[in-house]
């Protein structure tokens, strides 16, 4: 039988990755969101070096400069500090907390979800009931209570936000793993004598990566929003350090006289949160594993 020769390489089918990219590209808003995120990250990272102002420099002679006034593109605040540089510095903090909290919550949620989904039984029930219990607390109160007891800093805020936003990932991963758990390729690994760790992280995790990425992206958006809430209420990043949330807090008093103080940080939060949500939606469609079958 000449099967070997006849088994010429299969038709060049597109790899899953390139097909996912093709689907993502069709999603206009997601492309816009991705571009906006890139611009924001670059601006926050490099922008402060390009602007000839100190974010903490108080200049009482130039208080409340309106945008484009006196060389200040976005104007100045009640202490005469340049708003653009403060916005960019605040962006560094908000984006850092957003990404760091996402990393913490995704890692923790993934481990909880994969453990619950793989082992099942009593362990699953215990872990998932714990997830439900944490979900029962209103997140914002939990956040405020924790923030009230802990000295606020970037690291502690990251941990606090991470600790209150891992449940979504845990649920998504648990569901995905549970549906894959009885698949033949997992049984095949078991009949090869694979350890639980091997099956969880080598076999199951790569198949759950799509939903994890989607949930992670949405978590960034939520973490940025959470940071803004907490800082707005005064429990987060403390002045004079700037964050989008405490800049809004600061702007409250001058809403009528200097509206730009509220408009720019507000717009920044909206843009960041919306962008991450758009990208999350785009990824959800692009990485939908069902579309990859056949």
């Amino acid at each position: 039988m000449s099967a070997a020769e006849a088994l010429a390489p299969a038709p060049p089918a597109a790899r899953p990755r390139s097909r996912a990219w093709r689907r993502f590209r069709r999603h206009r808003l997601a492309l816009f969101g991705a571009a906006a995120i890139v611009v924001m990250v670059i601006a926050a990272a490099a922008g402060p070096w390009l602007i000839p102002f100190d974010p903490l420099h108080i200049d009482l002679r130039h208080r409340f400069q309106p945008p484009a006034g006196g060389g200040h593109l976005f104007g100045t605040d009640q202490l005469g500090r340049d708003l653009l540089i403060r916005l960019l510095m605040a962006g560094r903090i908000s984006l850092t907390i957003g990404f760091a909290a996402m990393t913490v919550s995704t890692a923790f949620g993934t481990v909880v979800g994969i453990t619950a989904g793989y082992y099942g039984g009593a362990l699953r029930i215990a872990l998932m009931r714990f997830v439900d219990a944490v979900l029962c607390f209103p997140q914002i109160f939990l956040l405020l209570v924790l923030a009230a007891f802990i000295q606020p800093s970037i690291a502690t805020l990251t941990l606090i936000i991470g600790a209150t936003s891992w449940m979504e990932v845990a649920r998504v991963v648990e569901g995905q793993v549970r549906s894959l758990r009885e698949r033949d390729f997992i049984l095949a690994a078991e009949t090869l004598g694979a350890s639980g760790r091997y099956v969880m992280f080598r076999e199951l995790l790569p198949n759950a990566i799509g939903p994890i990425i989607v949930a992670a992206t949405l978590t960034v958006a939520r973490a940025i929003l959470m940071e803004a809430y907490v800082s707005f209420l005064g429990y987060g990043i403390q002045p004079p350090m700037a964050s989008w949330g405490n800049m809004l807090n600061n702007a409250q008093e001058y809403l009528a006289s200097a509206p730009w103080l509220a408009i720019f940080p507000g717009a920044a939060i909206t843009l960041a949160v919306a962008s991450f949500n758009f990208v999350g939606d785009g990824l959800r469609d692009a990485l939908d594993a069902r579309l990859d079958l056949h």
């Binding site: 039988m1 000449s2 099967a3 020769e5 006849a6 088994l7 010429a8 299969a10 038709p11």
Partner: peptide, 21 residues
Amino acid sequence: AIPGTVPDPLHLPPGCAFAPR
């Protein structure tokens, strides 16, 4: 057994479709 597999419909052989097998 018939060796090989059915041809890819996007790249059909120029002659008889079954000839390669």
